[in-house]
Amino acid sequence: MTAARSSLARSVAAHAILIAYTLIALFPVFVIVVNAFKARRDIFNTPLALPTPESFSLVGFETVTSQGNFLLYFQNSLIVTVVALACVLLFGAMAAFALSEYRFRGNTLMGLYLALGIMIPIRLGTVAILQIMVASGLVNTLTALILVYTAQGLPLAIFILSEFMRSVSDDLKNAGRVDGLSEYRIFFTLVLPLVRPALATVAVFTMIPIWNDLWFPLILAPAESTKTVTLGAQMFIGQFVTNWNAVLAALTLAIVPVLVLYLIFSRQLIRGITSGAVK
């Protein structure tokens, strides 16, 4: 009886702590999104109330769509993220396959070399990266960002993927070799499909920092035509500081797509963190 009561008390306490923290985590996002749909007066008078028919207003979004190039920024972010992600996954999987499948001289050394970038942030090379991009005429192009993010994402991708590729059965690959498949066919048709869950995990880990990065867009591609959403939102909000409707609307536009993607992929992401990353 007392045991049951104490376990009930403990469960209530656990839920109380978790609900409290969930409120802390979600409240700021909630306040921003709710107020983006209100008229200026109501943003200040009743910041915590949901929009009502009287207070509802889209004036902020009108300012954003007429003054900012958010559609273009979205397009830029999407191109950069998707292309860099594809490069990281393809190149990373190929290198991971070479490291985990073949014994060759310098294998361990190559693995360590490629793993350096997990601990040393690429930002520290910014001075020289900018010079390289200036010299090759890539400043203010999306290519510059794609190259940098590919290099940034590769070390962790190779590290995680080679762990997974070691677990692919040798019998399967040897059977493929007996059947006369080339090493390339073995990689693309046998191994890659088997490590798809690992690829998904790596994809999520690679995508979030690319989409959210401010440093490299600010330094390598600050032109209007190559701004990413993160940089675009930062500059837009900087200009419209006093226009609360516009600022809240811009923030909402930046939050909602990421949030929707997260809710779709959260299971994948969480499974990835709880299985692969802890090794």
Binding site: C87, L90, F91, G92, M94, A95, F97, A98, L99, Y102, F104, M110, Y113, L114, L116, G117, I120, I122, L124, G125, T126, V127, A128, I129, Q131, I132, L147, V148, T150, A151, Q152, L154, P155, I158, E183, Y184, F187
Partner: peptide, 23 residues
Amino acid sequence: IAVFLAPAVLVYTAIMIIPLFST
């Protein structure tokens, strides 16, 4: 083996390691 390693090693070396040391 070289073909599998080349793209990753090239991009990583050119955009990350060389700039880091050059810095």
